[in-house]
Computed example of a mutant assay.
Amino acid sequence: MAKEHILVVDDEEDILELVRYNLTKEGYRVTAVATGEEALRTAHSIHPELILLDLMLPGVDGLEVCRKLKQDPKTSHVPIIMLSAKGEEADIVTGLELGAADYVTKPFSPRVLIARLRAVLRRRSAEPLSESAPLTIHDLVIHPGRHEVLIQGQQVDLTVTEFRLLHMLARRPGWVFTRSQIVNTVHGDDYPVSDRSVDVQVVGLRKKLGALGDYIETVRGVGYRFKE
């Protein structure tokens, strides 16, 4: 039985061949393209289960490709692992805020890349079906399947990270989550993002929710919870 279809986007031919060879050897179906424009077209035509996306691309760069894919309802659900020679925290955070599921820096070990890819696919397939049901809390409606949040019928523009954070808290009102738990649930175990970045994300999320931002309560010295 064929494994998942992976779209690989990189303008370096040797990287494309390295990744294609190793993924094919593991049984994955692989489509490889070299530009951002090709990535956008191909993602819509082949419906991949995951995208490996280089950050530095000619023309439309990887960050813009990620942004466009995550804004499109037809591709917003597809997990993206970003590949880049940049390893600074600012670049990692930018990729995450745009919706990347993971971030691997070059040069990388093919075994490590495949392990990270499998982890992302496992997290995606392990999401309980019950968690895809819409949540309605007074004027707030959260649609996990659509990655959509409505307040009094008006859509709120959230990043993927903000959406996951809100959904995590809202589906268990009254339950207190530590910053580490939030990082692990939203980004995955051992992710290179500091606990303090959660505070920044919460501030941004509250601002976007307006008056309903008060639903997200700070539990001093512990973390956050969604008001019961």
Rank of each mutant, 00 (worst) to 15 (best):
H187V: 09
T24R: 14
G204I: 04
S194D: 13
L96W: 12
I137G: 00
I182K: 14
V60S: 06
E228L: 12
K74Q: 12
D102L: 09
K70F: 01
P110G: 04
G99V: 09
R206N: 10
P192R: 15
P73V: 02
M56G: 07
H5R: 15
E88A: 09
L165P: 00
E37Y: 05
R179F: 03
S45N: 04
D157P: 01
L40M: 10
Q201F: 11
R225Y: 08
K74I: 03
L69Y: 02
A34C: 06
N22S: 04
D157S: 13
V30S: 09
L98I: 03
V65G: 09
A32M: 06
T136D: 04
P58G: 13
E148N: 02
R220K: 14
R41P: 00
G153V: 07
P58D: 13
L50Y: 01
E162W: 13
P107V: 00
L53Q: 09
A170I: 11
I80C: 02
V176Q: 12
V156E: 08
V198N: 05
L117C: 06
P48F: 00
L165I: 12
S180E: 15
R171L: 05
R179M: 01
A133D: 10
Y28P: 00
A211W: 02
N22F: 10
R20Y: 04
V176A: 11
V176F: 06
V202G: 06
A101V: 06
E38V: 01
R225P: 01
L40N: 07
Q71G: 14
H147D: 04
A126S: 15
L96K: 08
D14L: 03
G99E: 06
D102G: 14
V186E: 13
L129T: 11
V198A: 04
I6C: 06
L55S: 05
E4A: 11
T161N: 05
V120T: 13
P192N: 13
T24Q: 10
G223D: 13
V222R: 14
A39D: 01
E64M: 08
L96C: 12
W175G: 00
R67K: 13
N22P: 00
R196C: 00
A85W: 09
V160T: 14
L53R: 06
I6V: 11
L52A: 01
V33K: 15
E217W: 09
Q152H: 14
V9T: 10
L135A: 08
I142E: 03
E97C: 07
L169N: 07
S180N: 12
Y215D: 03
L169M: 10
R206H: 07
Y103K: 07
E4Y: 00
D102C: 10
E148Q: 15
F226C: 04
V149L: 06
I6T: 07
E217S: 04
A170L: 02
Q155H: 07
V203S: 08
K106A: 07
D91S: 12
L63H: 04
H47S: 15
E89C: 05
T105V: 14
Y103E: 07
R116Q: 03
L121D: 03
L121T: 08
